[in-house]
Design a binder for these strands. Structure first.
Lengths: 157, 157
DNA sequence: TTAATATATGAACGTTCGTTCAAGTATTCA
DNA sequence: TGAATACTTGAACGAACGTTCATATATTAA
């Protein structure tokens, strides 16, 4: 992750502001080049900082979306949305190796998107709750609303 | 991406099934080791295959979640949920460099999660639509429902 | 017991990702 | 015009990811 900047919410002592105009330039710190922070609108910064999501929570949430951010795992979710399946059949439906599928199921399991039960030597997987499906369909919804061509993101340059 | 397995939906000719029992072993292909597919329950596989999300769509959806799968970008979203902001103030609120923020805004922009308007030399960013926020809050919802300790995913071994 | 099956997992390999650094554009001010 | 500002972008570097391969565990069948 490299040298992450500090995420101190109780940091407002530094928020010196200009004479009164809304367009003020303020350099933070004495002049250390580790973090070049230039306030353009100190009031706006102060306002949104209160609503800024906690850094730890942001990382946790990012982890959840990360789990959803893989085509293989999404395809697994689309299968499990239909019915409970054993690893073997998921691999068959996806035409992938059991190993690859098992690795991905582990990821889904660790973020509690799927659960499983053992029966003999097989493991039957299913979706853990409907939050997963909500996220899934909400995501599809977004694609439907934004995509003109849908194949790729906006090509701009 | 390495040697990806074929994702041919019209592939059911291969679905030979056993005498009648639900527990049948079927090897696909003559014996090529490129794709070891062992059907345990051919009916289940055939059933869920119909509902299997298209591979291209899965990749597209994965791309959307990918964009949401970063703490910095989520923190930006949490700021823009409050109000429109220029790059400079986002950087200030996050205590990150403008460069890093600009790179991430580009990612959000390309997936059409944020839009921006130019005013003089500044660029004011805002959320593109409320789908983004829905995904965001839905994600937080999921965390609230699953996390006992919430800090990390299920520790299992 | 041995062999086969169903799944899990560690290491490795190539790819992707997010940040930093060093430019580069475009606008404003003197 | 030249300097400063606001933002963008390409290259590079280390970290993280997804698959493959080989192996390990556990259950069932012979």
């Amino acid at each position: 992750m490299g040298i992450m900047l500090v995420d101190d919410p109780a940091h407002d002592g530094e928020t010196k502001r200009g004479p009164g105009g809304p367009r003020t330039q303020v350099k933070e710190g004495g002049g250390s080049d580790t973090c070049e922070v230039t306030y353009t609108d100190p009031e706006a910064v102060a306002q949104v900082r209160k609503k800024l999501i906690d850094s730890d929570l942001a990382h946790e949430l990012a982890g959840l979306f990360q789990v959803m951010a893989d085509a293989t795992r999404l395809r697994i979710v689309s299968l499990l949305a239909e019915r409970e399946l054993c690893v073997c059949d998921i691999a068959a439906a996806l035409e992938m190796t059991q190993s690859a599928v098992s690795h991905q199921l582990r990821v889904l399991r660790m973020m509690q998107l799927v659960k499983f039960r053992r029966q003999g030597r097989m493991a039957y997987y299913s979706l853990d709750d409907d939050h997963v499906l909500k996220l899934y369909t909400q995501g599809l919804d977004h694609l439907g609303h934004t995509s003109g061509g849908a194949t790729g993101p906006e090509k701009e340059r």
